[in-house]
Simulated assay, not measured.
Amino acid sequence: MTKVAVIILAGTESHADTGRLVNGLETAKEFAETAGDEVELIFDGAGTQWIPELEDEDSDYHDLYQAVRDDTAVCEFCAGAFGVEDAVSDSGVVTLDDHDGHPSIRSLVADDYEVITF
Rank of each mutant, 00 (worst) to 15 (best):
M1D: 07
A5F: 13
A5C: 13
V6I: 14
I7A: 09
L9I: 05
G11K: 12
E13Q: 15
H15E: 14
D17N: 11
T18W: 06
G19E: 13
G19C: 04
L21A: 01
L25E: 06
E30S: 14
E30Q: 12
F31C: 03
E33V: 04
E33P: 03
A35P: 11
E38S: 13
V39W: 07
L41S: 11
L41K: 06
F43K: 06
T48F: 02
Q49C: 15
W50D: 09
P52Y: 04
E53F: 05
E53P: 00
L54H: 02
E57Q: 11
E57C: 01
D58T: 13
S59C: 07
D60E: 12
Y61I: 05
Y61T: 09
H62Y: 09
D63L: 08
Y65Q: 03
Q66W: 03
V68T: 07
R69N: 10
D70Y: 09
A73D: 11
A73K: 14
C75P: 04
C75Q: 00
F77D: 03
A79G: 02
A79Y: 04
A81T: 08
G83R: 10
V84M: 04
E85F: 06
D86V: 07
D86N: 12
D86S: 11
A87H: 02
V88E: 12
S89P: 01
D90Y: 04
S91I: 08
S91A: 11
S91N: 06
S91G: 07
G92S: 06
G92I: 05
G92Q: 11
V93S: 09
V94W: 00
V94D: 13
H99K: 13
H99Q: 14
D100G: 03
P103A: 05
P103D: 11
S104I: 06
R106D: 07
R106F: 07
